[in-house]
């Protein structure tokens, strides 16, 4: 039994040492907004924040997240106010199937914390999530809107 702090709330979760954080979040904490896509940290659908950093949660053991602050897409809004990335996503109608978007949004939110007004090149380097529907054109536009830099 380990204790995970997710979205500001403590969860006592019964997992093994090798259980990936992804499955602890989805199955033990019951927060299913974080998605499974590949299990080998290739696609980014499972991206969450651990102490503010974007992490592909399928590639991190849950036990390594003990004592850290985990944020999932469900916890991105603060006091019911959507994060500016979520607002930009809605403004640009970004999601198609939407399955990859939790991870995409979390990756972008972390990027904007690091680089408030990212250039296209910085976006290209930081955002490596797979989207099979192909929403990238809207993703890029929405990132610039969220950053307030319609570059």
């Amino acid at each position: 039994m380990i204790r995970l702090n997710i979205n500001g709330k403590d969860y006592e979760v019964d997992v093994e040492n090798d259980t990936p954080l992804l499955w602890a979040i989805r199955e033990n904490a019951g927060l299913t907004g974080t998605k499974y896509g590949c299990g080998i940290a290739q696609c980014g659908a499972c991206t969450v924040h651990v102490d503010g950093e974007a992490v592909r949660s399928c590639g991190m053991q849950a036990s390594d997240a003990v004592g850290k602050k985990i944020t999932t897409v469900e916890g991105l809004a603060v006091n019911g106010t959507m994060h500016r990335v979520q607002k930009a996503w809605i403004e640009h109608d970004v999601p198609q199937c939407g399955y990859c978007q939790s991870g995409m949004i979390m990756a972008v939110a972390a990027l904007l914390k690091d680089k408030p007004k990212p250039t296209d090149q910085e976006i290209d380097e930081a955002i490596t999530n797979i989207c099979r529907c192909g929403t990238f054109q809207q993703v890029r536009a929405a990132i610039h809107t969220a950053a307030g830099s319609n570059a």
Binding site: G33, T34, W89, I90, D93, G98, S102
Partner: peptide, 13 residues
């Protein structure tokens, strides 16, 4: 706008 966007941005879908 699509009718299904909000739930696809907050993990509720």
């Amino acid at each position: 706008k699509r009718l299904d966007t909000v739930e696809k941005t907050n993990g509720q879908m």
